[in-house]
Design a protein around this nucleic acid. Structure first.
Length: 413
DNA sequence: CAGGCAATAT
DNA sequence: GATATTGCCT
């Protein structure tokens, strides 16, 4: 969807804008005074862009800032330029309150639970995310940009900064610092790097490394993180954090930092625990279904189906093991209890309906919390070992495979 | 090598 | 105690 547009945009930007700063751009414009259209066009594109990244404002505070700045500058300019009274409502207002994001990058500001806004936002994010990669490598998605645009951005940023010097609140010194910082705090899906499996010499330098492998880059980012973020929330998946799907992060503990017998660590180093975030689990279950149940599926297949990079066979295997254990206990429990009653949330997911979408993380849908159509199955089908493949809700977060059959309400037959 | 299970670690 | 990792066997 967005990719095409973005590409176009990129191209356009590249050819017409990127090489210049806003100032230059304006100068250029005013030189050829007869291009108000260009300006407006550009402005509208900026606003468009702003709208797009609005959902990511927390992850991309700087981008927001840049865009906002650029837009406001351009607006002023455009009005100056063509003082033709135009009725353009101050769309901008809404975004301006970006202010505090810079101020208190440290802790919170995002605790508001606006149902509407937040929800939309999250959904947006999720879509974007999942369309890119599950636990965003941040480096993967951004890298391409980084190499090309990083410097430009910096320059631009700098210009803008100096321009509005007295407005204070100057942006963090290093854009990437801030970014990393925030990422560390509440990124959606980080690949939970493992430490120095082989390369102890990974330079922790900047983000620009061109051909470095993903892992290395992740690592570097992470290292920076661990340095920058003193207290990372240990919120694994559904545990620490409730609601707001955007921070199901697996953060990396201080393991790498303090001692770090850099070279002599490989031996007994245990792998970093993988956090099976709800999303991840959801994917897992999805794959499971596609493969015909937890008994039929093999770790490898699952892993391939999940399409989560960085995920290893062993991890899947382990998870599968646990999954099997848990799913064996519950359903067998009481003989005839309709499956639906048990959790109320036995898979209702379109396991057969969905024709092609694997990822389709649409489960977060607020629409149908629990409609239990499937339900009654006459008896266990004779053909297989596992007739009851359950799928946990996974609807928003906090998967738990213990369906809580002990609902306060009286569930009677 | 890949899967399954059990022991072990966090 | 739950959950993830590692080891061992097939």
């Amino acid at each position: 969807m967005g990719s095409v547009a973005a590409e176009e945009l990129n191209l356009d930007l590249r050819s017409s804008f990127v090489p210049k700063t806003i100032t230059d751009f304006l100068r250029h414009l005013s030189a050829n005074n007869n291009h108000p259209a260009t300006l407006r066009d550009f402005l509208s594109r900026l606003e468009d862009e702003l709208r797009k990244i609005h959902a990511f404002k927390r992850e991309l505070p700087l981008s927001m800032l840049l865009l906002n700045d650029a837009i406001s500058v351009l607006k002023v300019e455009s009005q100056k330029c063509c003082r033709v009274a135009r009725d353009s409502p101050p769309v901008l207002e809404e975004f301006i309150p970006l202010k505090k994001e810079l101020g208190d990058q440290s802790e919170e500001e995002e605790e508001e639970n606006d149902d509407d806004k937040d929800d939309n936002e999250c959904r947006d994010k999720r879509n974007w995310m999942s369309s890119v990669q599950l636990w965003n490598n941040n480096t993967t998605t951004t890298t391409t940009n980084n190499n090309n645009n990083a410097s430009d951005r910096k320059q631009l940023l700098h210009k803008l900064q100096t321009k509005k010097s007295e407005e204070g609140q100057s942006v963090a010194e290093d854009p990437f610092q801030t970014c990393s910082n925030r990422n560390g705090g509440r990124r959606a899906f980080m690949p939970f790097s493992r430490y120095s499996s082989s390369s102890s010499s990974v330079p922790v330098t900047t983000v620009g490394l061109g051909a470095a492998s993903k892992e290395e880059k992740e690592e570097s980012v992470r290292n920076r993180l661990s340095l920058l973020t003193p207290s990372v929330k240990e919120g694994c998946g559904s545990r620490g954090s409730r609601s707001s799907s955007n921070r199901a992060v697996s953060s990396s503990p201080p393991t790498a930092q303090p001692g770090l017998r850099a070279t002599s660590l490989q031996q007994t180093a245990r792998k970093q625990r993988r956090c099976w975030s709800p999303e991840l689990h959801r994917r897992f279950v999805n794959a499971l279904q596609k493969l015909g149940g937890s008994q039929a599926a093999t770790p490898k297949q699952i892993r391939e189906l999940m399409q989560v990079d960085g995920l290893t066979n062993d991890e899947v295997k382990s998870h599968l093991q646990k999954y099997r254990l848990h799913t064996r206990r519950v359903p067998a429990a009481s003989s005839n209890q309709p499956v639906v009653v048990l959790g109320g949330l036995w898979m209702s997911q379109d396991q057969y309906n969905d024709s092609s979408k694997v990822s389709s993380s649409g489960s977060g849908s607020p629409q149908s919390p629990l409609h239990l159509a499937a339900g009654s199955r006459g008896g266990t089908s004779p053909t297989e070992g596992d007739s009851i493949e359950d799928d946990e809700d996974a609807r928003s977060e906090s998967y738990s495979w213990k369906s809580h059959m002990n609902k306060p309400g009286k569930v009677d037959v």
